Computed example of a mutant assay.
Amino acid sequence: MADGTPPRIVVAGSANMDLVGLAERLPRPGETVLGDGFVMTPGGKGANQAIAAARAGGRCTFLGAIGSDAFGVTIDARLRASGVDTTHLRTAYGDSGVAIIMVDRAGENSIIVSPGANRTFADLTDAETAAIAAADVLLCQQEIPDATVTAAARAARSGGTRVILNAAPARELSPELLAAVDLLVVNQGEAQALTGRAEPDLDALLRLVPRVVLTLGGAGSWYADRDGRNETVAPFRVDVSDTTAAGDAFTGALAVAWGEGRDVVDAVRWANAAGAACVRQVGASNSLPGRADIDALYAAG
């Protein structure tokens, strides 16, 4: 914010326990590969992005659902320990969401997600709607029910809160949701799925929303808007250990930087630094960088 007050970020999304197996290479179908190690850590795109935003300097509230199992207790504890407000976090009887992740020595991964309690996150309460309306930025993804994402975005629009949608995993977006989105964040595969084009087409995406960030992995990012800005934002070069939460680090940091009032292209560049800082460690929420690490990499670049 212009007065130095940390921006208020609300993240509405998923929370999972990530079970991460490390191996020299990813197995082919029907093949067993001996692993190098195992890590169990809280994750889920929503929880990851909430932690990323809090560590990047935002005042972050998380809206979502965990199960009544031990995984749910651990997820809640990780969120709170990272500075995320979990006042509105729901507990549903049954299993928490779980992600089974395989990571090779090049940092590439394959992931299976079992949503668990995330499926129950529906019908926003008055308190949840009020939290969204009071925020500077609402950040959503697509690991929770479509209707919940749309309801959250609609509440943000009514309250004058800017909306960032990370359209992952890719699925059809309703006209009602698109009308409430201020900034769309997608990777190349998601962009192709949304437009039906073999190559990412920013013009096609800008017919859906007013601003788009296309993340390009190790090649940085690409920003475009309906006002005619179209810029490639260079990456930061680091040694890669695991790319699992890089996109979440990027998106959470982007929400904070934009909420602080930075020029949007500079916000994307700062978010690039957050994504690069993240891939230097193995894991999901445990690898999300703090503001000092992001600033250091940003300044060095």
Rank of each mutant, 00 (worst) to 15 (best):
G116S: 08
L22C: 04
P210M: 07
G261C: 04
S241T: 12
A53E: 05
L183C: 03
V233R: 03
E128P: 04
V279E: 03
D201Y: 01
L124I: 09
V279P: 04
L297E: 01
R197T: 15
M17V: 06
G97W: 04
A131Y: 09
V233N: 05
T161S: 06
T232E: 15
L194I: 11
D136M: 00
G283C: 13
A276T: 02
E143P: 06
G218T: 02
D227V: 13
D239Q: 14
A246R: 09
V149I: 11
D242T: 01
A106V: 07
A257W: 00
A77R: 15
V98E: 14
D136P: 04
G21Q: 07
R226A: 14
G4Y: 10
D104M: 01
W222G: 09
T243K: 10
S174G: 12
V20G: 05
T32G: 05
A179L: 11
D293Q: 13
T5M: 10
D104W: 01
C60S: 15
N272D: 09
G44D: 12
G220Q: 05
A134P: 05
A130N: 05
A168N: 06
F250C: 09
R157H: 15
L254D: 07
R154L: 14
R25H: 11
G72K: 07
G35H: 12
A300P: 05
E231V: 13
A234F: 08
D126K: 08
D293R: 14
R80Q: 15
E190V: 00
S174C: 05
T91M: 07
D146R: 15
T120K: 13
T148E: 06
D295W: 01
A81Q: 10
D227W: 14
S110H: 14
S241K: 15
A152L: 03
